[in-house]
Amino acid sequence: MAKYIGKRLLYMILSLWMIVTATFFFMRIAPGNPFASEKKLPPEIEANLNAHFGLDKPWYAQYWEYLVRIVNWDFGPSFKYKSQTVNDLINEGFPVSFLLGMEAIFIAVAVGVLLGIIAALKHNRWPDYTAMIVAVLGISVPSFIMASFLQYFLAIKMGIFPVARWESFMHSVLPAVALASTPMAFIARLTRSSMLEVLANDYIKTAKSKGLSRGVITVKHTIRNALLPVVTYMGPLTAGILTGSFVIERIFGIPGLGAHFVTSINNRDYTVIMGVTVFYSILLLVSILLVDIAYGIIDPRIKLAGGKKGE
């Protein structure tokens, strides 16, 4: 196990290095620079600014400096917000995004799994059709449309929830639902098909032949095994929530990391873009590792490579 995790950590560092490098060079190729704006700056001032931020040095020097700083968990200053570092932005924005993301993941998993189970148990009857229509809507309606839709009806028309901002739990409900809708629909479909697959298995017939009640069979033999694929989906789910949050935070005016990220792309704020990208990558890689480890613990058939072999 320790060996397996060690190996995985090594791969993670390698992937991170590649991501950092790729981001660095994409940023350089991209046209424009942080100080480009409608008004042309006098050349002396631009040169001064470039010198101040190190942009006058050759690319390999910049690249090396950047790598060294990242290893020290220092993402440097923001080009645009003079007084803030990228670390400040992350420290300030991430807790908000984290809360929103967790809420969305909770909704997606809880509601998705529930819908999937009901659909499978009532296969080809109205609860199944209803759940699957909800799922198709969830998958095909993009989250930003879902967001505006929720804002319009539940906030503006009915006034149940606040329209935007980030002040109380009530403020978090609509953005979390909007963020959760697509992954929730995926989870519902995944759970349903995996339930149906498990239900068709011989061991369910064995369980029935033992005289176990339908309830016991559903809980102990069906749902548990049907949820294994859902656990594997947690990695992509995290990624989906992360990227989804860029748009949703903008729409609801939430001061999270996603909103900062989008702003900094508009501003060509190199260091912020790179810093947040690296931060997101770390987050994603760690969550995928955690999911894999969890899966190995839940499914007895999986022996994490490096552990001892079966007989």
Partner: peptide, 22 residues
Amino acid sequence: EKIRGKEISMIFQDPMTSLNPT
């Protein structure tokens, strides 16, 4: 449910799939 497993029980063809793997 009171008859299955108690009065009558059954062994199936494929032992690879008739036990719950988890």
